[in-house]
Design a protein around this nucleic acid. Structure first.
Length: 556
RNA sequence: GCCCUAGUAGCUCAGUGGAAGAGCAACAGCCUCCUAAGCUGUAGGUCACAGGUUCGAAUCCUGUCUAGGGCGCCA
C-alpha cells in the first residue's frame, strides 16, 4: 500500500469514528466507507458520500448528518486542512499535501516494478487469444485481439497473477484441408496448369506465394504424386509456412506466446475420445439422428449441440471442449478466452461444457473483441475475406507503425465496435493521441539531458522539501493512483484504463512542465529535488507504456 | 423471431448508483526560457425515448426505437 492509499485508509477510519461519536449510527450499521478522488478540484482532495448513504437509516437530512460528522472529526489525525459540506451532502476533504513527497523515493526505488501489487495472489491464469486459423494473414480483428490480449496479460502479471499466453492452432479439420487444396491449385497454376481454386479456398497472396515457392523448388515433382500423399505434403507445407508467418508477425507486433497449442495433438493424444467418454459417463450426451449430442441446455444454452456428426466426424466444439478440459488439468484456476465477435454465440455452449466437465462457470471468462471498421479519407474501407483483399496486421505495422496501432487498439473498450481512423493513426501530429504520451516521455528525457549538460547530477537521496507547488502535488497524486489503476484494469479486463491513465498522467506532466522549470542554475536545491520528482514520473510513465506495448522514445 | 453489444458534446469515446468528463474539431491567448507533437482559457449535453426502483439513475429494472453482431451435423 502506498502513501496515498494509507492516507485514504486513515481518513476512512476517522470518518467512521466521527460518525459513531456523533451517535448517528452504531458500528454495525456503518456501511463500507467510500472515499473518492473528486474530478473537480473545488471538491477537495478526497470526498465521501457517507452522509447521503446514512440518510435512510438516520432519518435525517444528509447535509445535517454531514455536519455532525465533520464536527466530530479529529482533523489532526490525517493532515486535514479543512472540510467542506457540499452539494447534496458530500464531505470534501482538503489536505496538506506535503505528505505526498514520500511517494517520490518509493517510486524511484521500485523502478520497473512500481505499480505491481499482489491483487491476484499469484493465481494461475491462462489467456487464450488471437488463435486465428493458420490459413492466411492476420487481419484487423486479429490485430485488435492481439493488442488487447497481450496488454491484458501484461496487466494481469503486474496485478499479481501468474499468466500464461496461449495460442490455439486450428490445424485439424476442414479449413486445413482447404488450405492444402488451395496450395495445390496455386502450385499447379504456378506451373502453368489451368487449375481451379476450391470453392472455399484461400485466395490470399500468401498462398499464391507458397505455390510459386513450391513450383520453383520442386518443379513438376508433385504433379503426378498420388493424391493423398500429395495433399498431405501441401497441407504440411502450407501449415508450416502459415505458422512461421503468424509467429513472426506477432513477434514483430510485440506479442510473444508461451504456448502454441495444436488442435491435432488432441486427436493424437486421445484427449477427444477421453473427453467424450467422460461426458457419456456423466450422462451429459445422448444419441439422436445418428449423431451424438451434448445436453448443453442443462446449463443454460438455448439448444443442444452436436459433438459427433452422423458421418462420424467431430464438430468444432468437440476438440475445443477437450482443449478446455486440458487447460484446467494443467492447473489453471482461471481461463480467459479472448474471442472475435463472430464467436459470440459460442460462449453459452462453452460455458455449458465447462460446467458439464465439473468446473465452476466462474473459472471461464470470455471477452469478446468487437468488430473493427477501417476508415480512410473519411470513408469506410470495404474488405472481403473471399478474395483475400483485407488490411492485415502487417499492413498496419508498416503503414501506421506498431506504437500507434497498439495504442489505438488498447485505447478503446474491447467489447465495443471500433472505428479505426487510418489517417488519424498515421498522422504525425497532435491529433494523434499516442504522441501525447510519447512526447511527455521525450520531454522527460530531454530534461535529464539538459541537467547533465548544466552539471546537475541526479541524486536519488536529494532533499525533497522544495517540492511544494500545486502542479507537483497534482502530479504526485496521479502517480500514486497507478497501482490501483493496474489492479482495476486487471479486475475489469480493461486495458483501456491504462491508456486513459497514461493520458491523464501525461497531461499532469505537460501542465507542470509549462508552469515550472526543472533545471534552474539559480536554484540547486529545487533542481535536485525536481529531478527526482521527474524521475518518478518517467518511471511511472514507462511502466504504463510497457503494459500496452508502446515504446517510450527518448527523442521525438 | 430469439439472444448479445452498443446509443453520452459537431466527431471519436471514457464514466456504469453519488457533484455530467477527455481527446479532436471551433474560438481567444502563450515560445529571448529544460522539445509548441505542448500549455492556459471560452464555448459546446433533456446521457436514444417512455415508465419504474432509490434520499439520489447516464449507471439498476421493464418496454419501445435505431445501429451492429450471433443464432449450422461450418470453423
Amino acid at each position: 500500500m502506498n502513501i496515498v492509499e494509507q492516507m485514504k485508509e486513515r481518513i476512512k477510519e476517522e470518518v467512521a469514528q466521527a460518525a459513531e461519536k456523533a451517535g448517528i449510527v452504531s458500528k454495525e450499521e456503518l456501511p463500507v466507507i467510500i472515499l473518492e478522488t473528486p474530478k473537480e478540484k473545488e471538491h477537495g482532495d478526497f470526498a465521501t458520500n457517507l452522509a447521503m448513504q446514512l440518510a435512510g437509516v438516520a432519518k435525517k437530512a444528509p447535509r445535517l448528518i454531514a455536519e455532525d460528522i465533520t464536527s466530530n472529526f479529529d482533523k489532526s489525525k490525517a493532515s486535514i486542512e479543512k472540510m467542506e459540506i457540499a452539494g447534496p451532502g458530500f464531505i470534501n476533504f482538503f489536505l496538506d499535501n506535503s505528505y505526498l513527497r514520500d511517494l517520490i523515493p518509493s517510486i524511484v526505488n521500485e523502478g520497473k516494478t512500481y505499480g505491481k501489487t499482489n491483487y491476484g495472489g499469484q493465481e494461475k491464469v491462462q489467456v487464450e487469444f488471437v488463435s486465428a486459423n493458420p490459413t492466411g494473414n492476420l487481419h484487423l480483428g486479429h490485430a485488435r485481439g492481439a493488442a488487447v490480449g497481450d496488454s491484458l496479460c501484461n496487466i494481469l502479471t503486474m496485478a499479481g497473477y501468474d499468466v500464461t499466453r496461449e495460442y490455439y492452432i486450428n490445424d485439424a479439420g476442414n479449413q486445413i484441408s482447404n488450405l492444402a487444396l488451395s496450395v495445390e491449385a496455386r502450385y499447379l497454376q504456378a506451373l502453368g496448369v489451368d487449375a481451379d481454386m476450391p470453392e472455399d479456398g484461400y485466395h490470399g497472396a500468401d498462398v499464391q506465394q507458397f505455390g510459386k515457392e513450391l513450383a520453383e523448388k520442386h518443379g513438376e515433382q508433385y504433379v503426378d504424386v498420388e493424391k493423398e500423399e500429395r495433399l498431405a505434403f501441401f497441407r504440411e507445407y502450407g501449415l508450416k509456412r502459415e505458422m512461421e508467418k503468424l509467429k513472426q508477425d506477432l513477434l514483430d507486433f510485440g506479442v510473444d506466446f508461451d504456448v502454441w497449442f495444436s488442435e491435432t495433438s488432441l486427436y493424437e493424444d486421445g484427449k477427444i475420445e477421453e473427453t467424450l467418454q467422460l461426458l457419456e459417463e456423466s450422462q451429459e450426451v445422448y444419441k439422436e439422428d445418428g449423431a451424438i449430442w451434448f445436453k448443453s441446455t442443462n446449463y443454460g444454452d438455448d439448444k443442444d449441440r452436436v459433438l459427433v456428426k452422423s458421418d462420424g466426424t467431430y464438430t468444432y466444439l468437440t476438440p475445443d471442449i477437450a482443449y478446455h478440459k486440458n487447460k484446467f488439468e494443467r492447473g489453471f484456476k482461471k481461463v480467459i478466452n479472448i474471442w472475435g465477435a463472430d464467436h459470440h454465440g459460442y460462449i453459452p455452449r462453452m460455458r455449458a461444457a465447462v460446467q458439464a466437465l465439473g468446473y465452476n462457470k466462474e473459472q471461464l471468462e470470455t471477452q469478446i473483441i468487437q468488430m473493427v471498421n477501417l476508415y480512410e479519407n473519411g470513408e469506410k474501407v470495404k474488405m472481403s475475406k473471399r478474395t483475400g483483399k483485407a488490411v492485415t496486421l502487417r499492413d498496419l505495422m508498416e503503414e501506421v507503425g506498431i506504437d500507434a496501432t497498439r495504442y489505438f487498439f488498447a485505447m478503446r473498450s474491447a467489447d465495443t465496435h471500433l472505428d479505426f481512423d487510418l489517417d488519424l493513426a498515421k498522422s504525425q501530429s497532435n491529433e494523434n493521441p499516442v504522441y501525447y504520451v510519447q512526447y511527455a516521455h521525450a520531454r522527460l528525457c530531454s530534461i535529464f539531458r539538459q541537467a547533465e549538460e548544466k552539471g546537475f547530477a541526479f541524486e536519488p537521496e536529494a532533499d525533497l522539501s522544495a517540492v511544494a507547488t500545486e502542479k507537483e502535488y497534482d502530479l504526485l497524486k496521479k502517480m500514486g493512483e497507478f497501482p490501483e489503476i493496474v489492479a482495476l484494469a486487471a479486475e475489469k479486463y480493461a486495458p483501456h484504463r491504462i491508456t486513459n491513465y497514461l493520458h491523464e498522467l501525461s497531461s499532469a506532466f505537460h501542465s507542470f512542465y509549462n508552469a515550472e522549470r526543472v533545471v534552474d542554475s539559480e536554484d540547486e536545491r529545487k533542481t535536485k529535488a525536481r529531478l527526482v520528482l521527474v524521475k518518478a514520473v518517467q518511471t511511472t510513465l514507462q511502466n504504463g507504456m510497457r503494459l500496452i506495448g508502446v515504446s517510450a522514445p527518448e527523442k521525438m
